[in-house]
Simulated assay, not measured.
Amino acid sequence: MGCFGFLKAMMFLFNGIIFLAGAAILGVGIWVKVDSGSILGLLQNIDGAPSELEQVQNVGYLLIAVGAVLLILGFLGCCGAIKESRCMLLMFFVIILIVFIAEVAGAIVLLVFKPLAENLIDKFGTEVVESIKKDFGKNKDLTGLFNTTMTTLNCCGFYNYTDFAGSPFVNDLNTYPEQCCENNLPVCTENIAYLSKVPGCFPALVKLIDDNSVIIIAVALGIAALELAAMIVSMVMYCKIGSKRD
């Protein structure tokens, strides 16, 4: 097997895996959206299942989007390699190049314009806190989303427990969410000794990223290397196929 044949086989194998993964993710996403009632009914019958399981329905949209993109990429890569289609290989290259540029641009913005990013985050945080004070305990979707986030990150509010002051939840029940209490006490009144010890979700997320920065950087570099390799292989095949037809 020559160099071109090896590249062709690797391109087909790699993108075949991507295609199958995309098809599986897309199928799960469609199933979640179409049969969400049955899925939720099954999950909610499990002992100790959290009430926030209703948020599972919204995950379907994300799965469908990710699955569709992977499906298209895998199809273009596989068919482009097997059929030696320069058009498909070029489309495959362009899609990955767009994703790669977006990733690099995002990294540059975070590094070079860090103060601007911090201002945007602060502005976003202010809007989130306003939403909490206005709708937490009244809006089912927002309440479920925040409860899930706080349970996952072991945090309370966006910045801290004071974000819930004046919210419908606190006003109606005269208590704070149980995630805001140290040791998740079932009744969490405004007791600074308990409430102040639980970090806000934004500081908790920043700490989580800082603690795992090496892993995150390694994964990001690995993904970037794979994208570069895919672009290089697709362009090499594109040029080889062109030279064979000349």
Rank of each mutant, 00 (worst) to 15 (best):
D141C: 02
N160I: 09
T152K: 11
L142V: 06
K138E: 11
K140G: 00
G166H: 10
T151M: 13
Y161Q: 01
N154H: 09
C155S: 09
F164A: 03
F169D: 02
C155E: 07
G144W: 06
D141E: 15
T151G: 14
G157W: 03
L142R: 03
L145W: 12
G157V: 01
T149K: 07
T148W: 14
G157K: 04
T151R: 15
P168I: 05
T148Y: 13
Y159C: 02
T162F: 11
T148V: 13
L145R: 12
F169H: 11
G144I: 07
A165L: 13
C155V: 09
T151E: 15
T148H: 12
C155Y: 07
N154C: 00
F146Q: 10
T152V: 10
T162P: 10
L142A: 06
T152I: 10
L142M: 12
M150D: 00
L145T: 13
G157C: 04
T151S: 15
N139Q: 05
F169A: 05
F164P: 00
A165E: 14
C156K: 08
A165M: 12
S167F: 04
D141M: 13
F146E: 07
F169L: 08
P168W: 06
T151I: 13
F158P: 06
N139R: 04
L142P: 05
F146R: 04
S167I: 02
M150Q: 14
